[in-house]
Design a protein around this nucleic acid. Structure first.
Lengths: 120, 120
DNA sequence: GCCAGCTACCTTGTGTCACACGGTATGCAC
DNA sequence: GTGCATACCGTGTGACACAAGGTAGCTGGC
């Protein structure tokens, strides 16, 4: 049995993956928006192919709403010549500030986990 | 001592931190147990001081139960000369296997997030 | 005209989980 | 015996990813 999926699966591992992604996905979206604005469907296309993320529309859109309510992103509607109007998302100044803090925290956390059982 | 995390707080950030920790905490426990067995209270003392983790008893004990039910850790009771009996937790073979898979996945995820908005 | 198919957005229901708070019990110092 | 540290565990709350489904605009074939 050499079924070579990227990662083997089990009950516990599947749930763990979901939990791990929870925080990372928000960070990925903010980082992606930090380079330039995007519209929702564009984000889905890009991030659904990122290894390990596995983003879907049902995850992204509620998340973007939360980010907007929290004041981290702002939106802008633009007519498209080929399809429905697109809603572009971009970072607010507070969004950029928060992103910096998140990056710092994650770095600390990574350093902590690395020194626990890995190679001190 | 009262080591307070050196990170500013906000509504969104606080929730995000909780989400990020969710997956990492399980990994930290498994990694810690990979070096040698520990009892619960010992784990709380050690991991509650790890920067960024902020582990408490209410988080740890249900988590250890879940790990035991999932077959990743096993327990052993031992009388203590100074206090109540201690329940020692150690990794099962399946626990070690799962830990390896988790490490591999997290490495992939870290590489993905690093290439998103960091340094293209 | 009309319908199939892509683009683009969003909602609802289900299940998982950290954390705060509280509870129980043992041993030791005074 | 009363306080304090040790050591274990459970419940309630709220947050959230994900699957599945829904709405609507535009284009091309006929």
């Amino acid at each position: 049995m050499h079924g070579r999926a990227p990662f083997p699966v089990s009950d516990f591992f599947d749930n763990w993956v979901i939990q791990v992604r929870k925080g990372v996905i928000e960070l990925c979206i903010l980082r992606t928006l930090a380079t330039r604005e995007r519209y929702g469907y564009e984000l889905v296309k890009e991030l659904s192919e990122a290894p390990g993320l596995g983003l879907t529309e049902g995850t992204l859109y509620p998340l973007l709403s939360r980010l907007r309510v929290s004041g981290l992103v702002q939106t802008r509607l633009e007519e498209s010549s080929a399809g429905p109007a697109r809603k572009y998302y971009s970072l607010t100044p507070e969004g950029r500030r928060t992103l910096k803090t998140m990056n710092a925290f994650l770095e600390t956390l990574n350093r902590t986990t690395a020194t626990l059982g890995g190679t001190p």
